[in-house]
Design a protein around this nucleic acid. Structure first.
Length: 496
RNA sequence: GCAGUUGUAGCUCAGUUGGUUAGAGCGUCGGAUUGUGGCUCCGAAGGUCGGCGGUUCGAGCCCGCCCAACUGUACCA
C-alpha cells in the first residue's frame, strides 16, 4: 500500500464566488477599513456589530420553499426547526437590532458597522457570494438633512480613500418621484405592479445600455449580444416618450435645474411632488455645504426595489481602467443606499424612519488597486535565520529570540532542506536578510548576515555562477554579539 | 433561469483527414555547485485528454446525453 491512490485524492477546490485572501489583501483591506471608520467617527457615528446569522424572517425573506431553500440567501434549519439565514446585507440586521433595543438607544440612533455578507447568486466579475460591506445608518430621523448627510459622508469617504474629486459622483434620486412618473403614464394601482417593476428596471439600465437600450426595454424588448431576448415593458409611444423625457431631465446646470426640469415636464401627483420637494431640500443642504460638484440629482437612479421609500443614492466611480486581460473596464457603483422608513417598523407597531448607505469594500478595493492608490506589492517578510548545523538548532533559536526581543520580525527556518533551499525560501518570503552561521563561522565566533535585496541588485551584473557564489554579494561577517546591530543596519538601509 | 462559448499537466496552450508510447513553454522538485536566493546547463515528477455512453479494426479528435467554467442577459430582497 505504498502507492497513494491518486484517483481518489481529494480535489482541493474553492466554491465558486468565494475567494481566499492573502497577506497583502488583508493588510490593504485593514487600512481601508480604518480610513472609512475614521470618516464615520468624525461624523459622530458609533460602531455596533450584529452576528452573521439571523432568523430568516428577520431578514425580510419568507420561509424558504422546500424545493429551493437557498434561493438567493444561504439558509438552514436550527434544531428547533426554525429557519436561519446568513445575512445578505447589513441593513436588515440593523433594523432588527434597533427594534429589539429601541428603548435603550438614543434617537436618532447613528451607527456604523462593517462585515461579511453572503448572497447565494451567480457570481460574476466583481461579484462574489461573500463580500464585505461597510454601512452607516441614521434611524429615527425623517429629515432630508439625514439623507443629505449620508451623501456627503459617502463623498468624504471616497475621497479619504484617495479617489480624486471628479473621478466619482454621488447620484441621488427619490423613489417617490419614480412613483410619480409611473402614475403619470397610467401605471398606478396594484394591477400594474408588475409593469411598474419592469419600467423601473429599464430606467435603472440607463448607464448600462444607454437611452436606446432603455427605449427598447420600455417598448417591445431588447436582444443582448448572445442573441437572447429580454421582453420589454410594452408601453405605448406616449408612455415611452414620457419616461425617456424624464430620464433625460438631468441638467448640466445644476441640481435645482434638474428638479425644475422634472417638475415642468412631467405632470405628477402629490407623492411625486413630495419627492421633488425632498430632492430640493437635499440639494439646498448639500450646496450650502459645498458638495454640489459631487452630489448630483440623477433621475435614472433606481436602486434595489424592495425596501426603499424615499431618497436613494449611489456612489459611482467614473474613471476607466483595463482589467487583467487588457480590456477596458469600469467599476461603476461602489456603494449606495437610501431611506427605508418601513424596515424597522416591521418589528414594531409604530413606523420608524431611517436612512443609510453601504460601501462595497471588496469592489472598492479592486478599484483602488487598479488606480494604484493602494500598494499591491508584497510585504517585507521576516528575517530568516538559516540552519547549517542541525545539532546546533538551539543556538539558532537563540538568535531568533534575540532579534524578536529587539522588535525585529524574525523566524527560524523550520524546513528540512539544505542551504540552497533555505535561501530560496527566504527569497520567497521576501525576507530583508538572512542570518547564516556554519561550522566555519561558529569556530570564529562570527555570523554572516546577507542582504537579499542588495544581493538581488548585484546579481544582475554577475553572470558567472562560480563568481556569484564566491563573491557572496551583499554579505557581511560580524561577531555573534553584533547580530541585532547588523540586521538593524540592513533594515535601515532598505527602508531608506 | 435563458443564450452563447469553452473544457488536454499546477498555469498558458499545441495536438494534422480518426492511426503506434498525447507534446511545448512556464512553474515545481533534484543535480551540476553535498556552505548561499539570481543566470546557465542537465534531469525528474506531474495527464482516467471534464464525465458517461455510442459509432469505428482503432477516438483527445466524430455523434448523443450529462457536468463544470467563462461571457452576456435576467434576478439581486
Amino acid at each position: 500500500m505504498a502507492e497513494k491512490d491518486k484517483t481518489n485524492a481529494l480535489k482541493a477546490r474553492l466554491p465558486r464566488g468565494l475567494v481566499d485572501r492573502h497577506a497583502g489583501a488583508i493588510k490593504t483591506a485593514d487600512r481601508m477599513l480604518s480610513t472609512i471608520r475614521g470618516v464615520y467617527e468624525l461624523y459622530g457615528f458609533e460602531p455596533v456589530e450584529t452576528p452573521l446569522i439571523e432568523y430568516t424572517d428577520s431578514l425580510g425573506k419568507f420561509l424558504p420553499d422546500q424545493d429551493r431553500p437557498n434561493e438567493g440567501v444561504f439558509s438552514f434549519q436550527d434544531d428547533d426547526e426554525q429557519w436561519l439565514s446568513l445575512r445578505y446585507d447589513l441593513t436588515a440586521p440593523l433594523a432588527r437590532y434597533v427594534a429589539e433595543n429601541y428603548d435603550q438607544l438614543p434617537k436618532p440612533y447613528r451607527s456604523y458597522r462593517n462585515g461579511w455578507v453572503f448572497r447565494n447568486e451567480k457570481p460574476g466579475p466583481g461579484r462574489f457570494r461573500q463580500f464585505m460591506q461597510f454601512d452607516a445608518d441614521t434611524v429615527g430621523s425623517a429629515s432630508p438633512a439625514a439623507d443629505a448627510e449620508m451623501c456627503m459622508m459617502m463623498a468624504d469617504t471616497i475621497e479619504a480613500l484617495g479617489i480624486s474629486r471628479g473621478d466619482y459622483v454621488i447620484r441621488v434620486n427619490n423613489r417617490k418621484v419614480l412613483d410619480g412618473v409611473m402614475e403619470s403614464i397610467g401605471l398606478a394601482g396594484p394591477e400594474n405592479a408588475g409593469k411598474r417593476l419592469t419600467v423601473l428596471r429599464a430606467i435603472d439600465k440607463l448607464d448600462k445600455f444607454g437611452p436606446e437600450g432603455v427605449e427598447l426595454l420600455l417598448g417591445a424588448g431588447r436582444k443582448d449580444e448572445s442573441g437572447d431576448f429580454t421582453k420589454g415593458a410594452g408601453l405605448d409611444e406616449a408612455g415611452v416618450a414620457t419616461v425617456m423625457k424624464y430620464v433625460a431631465a438631468q441638467s448640466s446646470v445644476g441640481n435645482e435645474a434638474t428638479v425644475e426640469s422634472i417638475r415642468q415636464n412631467i405632470g405628477m401627483g402629490p407623492s411625486g411632488v413630495e419627492g421633488l420637494n425632498e430632492l430640493d431640500q437635499i440639494s439646498v443642504i448639500t450646496t450650502a455645504a459645498g458638495y454640489s460638484d459631487r452630489i448630483k440629482i440623477d433621475p435614472s437612479v433606481v436602486r434595489g426595489l424592495e425596501y426603499y421609500t424615499g431618497p436613494v443614492f449611489e456612489a459611482e466611480l467614473l474613471f476607466e481602467t483595463v482589467n487583467e486581460k487588457g480590456e477596458p473596464a469600469r467599476f461603476g457603483s461602489v456603494g449606495g443606499g437610501g431611506r427605508y422608513d418601513g424596515l424597522v417598523g416591521r418589528f414594531r407597531s409604530e413606523s420608524i424612519p431611517a436612512t443609510g448607505f453601504s460601501i462595497g469594500v471588496s469592489r472598492l478595493m479592486a478599484a483602488l488597486t487598479a488606480l494604484g492608490k493602494v500598494s499591491a506589492e508584497a510585504e517585507i517578510g521576516p528575517v530568516v535565520v538559516t540552519i547549517f548545523d542541525r545539532d546546533r538548532i538551539g543556538e539558532y533559536q537563540k538568535m531568533v529570540t534575540e532579534l524578536r526581543n529587539a522588535g525585529i520580525r524574525a523566524e527560524l527556518y523550520l524546513g528540512g532542506s539544505g542551504p540552497k533551499a533555505q535561501l530560496k525560501y527566504a527569497d520567497k518570503r521576501n525576507a530583508p536578510c538572512v542570518v547564516i552561521q556554519g561550522g566555519d563561522e561558529k569556530a570564529k565566533g562570527v555570523i554572516q548576515v546577507k542582504d537579499l535585496a542588495l544581493g538581488k541588485q548585484m546579481s544582475a551584473e554577475i553572470t558567472d555562477n562560480a563568481v556569484w557564489r564566491e563573491a557572496r554579494p551583499a554579505q557581511v561577517e560580524v561577531p555573534e554579539t553584533d547580530l541585532v546591530a547588523a540586521v538593524r543596519e540592513i533594515l535601515a538601509r532598505q527602508a531608506g
